[in-house]
């Protein structure tokens, strides 16, 4: 448990560096550190599927971000900030943490999942009948592909749409017609 907290503190520090660093490369690499740190934390938290996904997705995210900035010749991404907004964000942070503190007690204690607190949860059903009804030993994949396959189909649709939007934005022919721009 302390280990997880250490990893989370590490990700917070990495995130702060990523946010504040003026150089594009170091900023993006720090962002990668956030993702990789989290993926190791996921491994400790007993979620190897997510850890794997997180690692590979982080790699692709970094590649995309680097292509978008350094690949285009942008090496500095200094985010100048304004004082009024800083005050605003401080107020917002105060509000948010007050809200969070107010409802922290409503969460189950750390280390106790809903499975321990309640008796008849969907998770228990999935764990119990995952192998029997869906046939997979990996319960996460049983949920994804059998019990809640509709969600997965919807997710594929969302991904498809997002990628379609990105391609449409980037396609020269869509904007300027055949034969390049202008």
């Amino acid at each position: 448990m302390v280990l997880i907290q250490i990893f989370l503190v590490f990700t917070i520090i990495a995130a702060l560096i990523a946010v504040e660093a003026p150089s594009a490369l170091s900023s993006i690499i720090s962002l990668g550190a956030v993702g990789f740190g989290l993926s190791i934390a996921f491994l400790w938290l007993g979620a190897p599927d997510i850890a794997i996904t997180q690692v590979v997705v982080e790699i692709l995210t970094l590649v995309i971000l680097i292509r978008a900035t350094i690949g285009k010749g942008v090496t500095e991404i200094r985010g100048n900030e304004s004082k009024t907004l800083l005050i605003g964000s401080l107020i917002l942070f105060g509000l948010g943490s007050a809200f969070f503190a107010n409802y922290l007690s409503a969460f189950p204690e750390f280390g106790k999942s809903a499975i321990d607190v309640f008796s008849e949860t969907p998770s228990q059903f999935y764990l119990k009948f995952g192998l029997e009804k869906a046939g997979g030993a990996n319960v996460v994949n049983d949920i994804l592909l059998d019990f809640r396959a509709y969600d997965t189909l919807g997710e594929a649709t969302v991904l498809f749409t997002a990628i379609l939007g990105a391609i449409t934005l980037l396609n020269k022919d869509v904007f300027f017609g055949e034969g390049g721009e202008k």
């Binding site: 938290l45 007993g46 979620a47 599927d49 997510i50 996904t53 997180q54 997705v57 692709l60 995210t61 995309i64 971000l65 978008a68 999942s113 809903a114 499975i115 969907p122 998770s123 999935y126 764990l127 995952g130 319960v139 996460v140 994949n141 049983d142 949920i143 994804l144 809640r148 969600d151 997965t152 997710e155 969302v158 991904l159 997002a162 990628i163 939007g165 990105a166 391609i167 934005l169 980037l170």
Partner: peptide, 25 residues
Amino acid sequence: MDPLPQALVITSIVISLGVVALMVA
């Protein structure tokens, strides 16, 4: 572990990648 959040987080991660691609574009 509770498998339900994990299953949903997997989809969330991949969608976030798609959304990041869209935002970068």
